[in-house]
Amino acid sequence: MAIRNIINIDEDKCNGCGNCVVDCAEAALQIVNGKAKLVKELYCDGLGACMGGCPTGALTIVQREADAFDEAATEAHGHAMKAKPEPCGCPSTRSVDFANKEVVGRGVSETRPELTNWPIQLKLIATEAPYLNNADLLMAADCAAFSTINFHSRFIKGRKVVIACPKLDDAQFYFDKLTEMFKVNSINSVTVVRMEVPCCGGLAYITKQAIQKSGKEIPYSEVVIGIKGDILSEGKTPLIPKLQAV
């Protein structure tokens, strides 16, 4: 070990938004139990690229005794993180498009469900699922559907649904998968529906970054829902400006 620059995370300040995970090219950070964690010291190059997107100032570079940065091990780790999971054969991973379904046994007081695809969890959706082509995509935070009324008719109708929670899951995996999904499919538009809590902003951040990384110009809009179920904001949102070559 030697004294070198390495990332330091103040867990009291960390809100688990996942921005740092997306910004870390070495995949040295992960969200664990709602907080950013350094996976291994040898994966951190100490340059601080992960700090720029942190909204709370939880990340700093410190000098301390740490394992030396290992470029070869970091590259192997990055490839492993990006590896696509093999289908397990479980019905939960089988792509199904049931846009032309018939509703039977529906009472007069019930609302017609608008969901037309399965699965909906980002971890389980195949990046080349047939129903993604020429789709208007709804990226919804896991909590959103439970927090506002008429979610099906207002947000799901006419869209293919993807749900995710970057605070509880691997934000880097989400970023890589969405980037590939946008690259290989003709997505007509993307609407993110998220909660007002800061960590939920990570879903919007990851989605916008993935659209840019894909090289596609996909119309993007965003809806923010309050924790009491009211809609705080809604409309088209510009993507983060692309970096200009120097």
Score class of each variant (00 low, 15 high):
V62I: 14
R94K: 14
E41I: 01
V62S: 07
L59R: 09
N33C: 05
K101E: 03
C44I: 01
T93M: 14
N33L: 13
E75H: 13
V62M: 06
V103D: 03
E71L: 09
K101Q: 13
L47C: 15
D67W: 07
A99W: 05
K84Q: 08
A58K: 09
P85M: 11
P87I: 03
C88G: 14
C54I: 02
K35W: 03
K37P: 10
R112C: 06
L47N: 15
T74R: 12
E71C: 07
V62P: 10
V39W: 07
C90Q: 08
Q63G: 09
C50Q: 01
G34S: 09
N33D: 03
H77S: 02
A66F: 10
E102W: 10
S92H: 13
M51F: 03
E65I: 06
E86H: 12
N33P: 03
E86G: 06
G57L: 07
S109T: 13
V96R: 15
D45C: 12
I61T: 00
P87D: 15
C54T: 02
S95G: 04
A72I: 11
C50W: 01
I61P: 00
K82S: 06
G105H: 10
G46F: 00
L47S: 15
C44P: 10
V96E: 11
H79A: 15
G46P: 00
C50V: 02
A72C: 04
E41Y: 02
L47E: 04
P85K: 13
